[in-house]
Design a protein around this nucleic acid. Structure first.
Lengths: 151, 151
DNA sequence: CTAAACCCTAGAGCAAACTCTAGAGTCAAG
DNA sequence: CTTGACTCTAGAGTTTGCTCTAGGGTTTAG
């Protein structure tokens, strides 16, 4: 049978994923999260996508690149498809990100200072006697906070 | 019965946790990870700690504050209790962290530039006509990378 | 006709460091 | 004797964004 299979613009999930530079897993994942609408299906159950979905996927990647989280992107898309312009929402989100970035940078600067201090201490240490109770004197008079390891 | 309960220096997990400023869950968690040695037990199964454990907990928090991960701290402790000085290891770890911090700061700076650019774009946009196909023109000509949201 | 390449679902697993729950037992004070 | 604070274990849940597996079915080229 060749009925639905040859409609123009038809893409299966693998082609869509390749075109967007993501994995098929990711496409299905986004659908589950509500970032992509439930697509048409063949009788076999295969998902069939229109080019609009590719646009949308690209938008999602760009929004991600701009620092939005998937749930934020979902909200932006919801606004858009509710007929509103999402721009105010996006602006607010970006401004929020900016504040957060500044905060993180301040933290990193502080952390870097502390690392420098500890390393400097460590250069003087080898000749000092280590207290028996100490585990490592480099750390024993230490900084304050955890280090933001990246997700 | 008051047999074991009144030995001097005896601490139950709750007292230890309070003294160290962590939760009892955390203490048990550290034990499971091998950061704390299996403690003595009462007949009832209650953990009984010596002051040395409090020292160790404090060391762990300090090492964390210096940016070491729990598995790295475990390694440092292993070295120490294998009779070696962990200082070289710690120095190496801290130097590694420093490199990582520099990398992250560079990324954050780049990301901040991109946010500024997008926000600046957004100030000029409201009067521009939005392409029908566009979802949000602020994002449609966008930056490059994901934003390190903190753990 | 068969093999390769594709697709489906439901659900687990990863990183990291906790945090919390359920359900049960223990202990000290009044 | 009861109340309330404490403890135990084993295991699930949190966060975010995937990534992969198991165990199937479908399509297409040769």
């Amino acid at each position: 049978m060749t009925t639905q299979a040859q409609l123009e613009g038809v893409r299966l999930i693998g082609q869509l994923a390749r075109a967007a530079g993501v994995s098929v897993h990711t496409v299905r994942y986004y659908e589950r999260l509500g970032l992509l609408p439930p697509p048409l299906r063949r009788d076999s159950g295969y998902r069939v996508y229109s080019p609009a979905t590719l646009e949308r996927l690209r938008f999602i990647r760009q929004a991600q690149a701009a620092g939005l989280r998937l749930d934020e992107i979902r909200e932006v898309l919801r606004l858009k498809y509710a007929g509103q312009s999402p721009c105010d929402c996006v602006r607010a989100l970006l401004q929020q990100k900016l504040v957060e970035v500044e905060r993180e940078m301040a933290e990193l600067r502080r952390f870097r200072r502390e690392l420098h201090a500890a390393l400097k201490r460590s250069q003087k240490l080898p000749r000092l006697p280590h207290r028996a109770s100490a585990i490592c004197p480099i750390l024993e008079s230490a900084p304050r906070r955890g280090h933001p390891t990246k997700p």
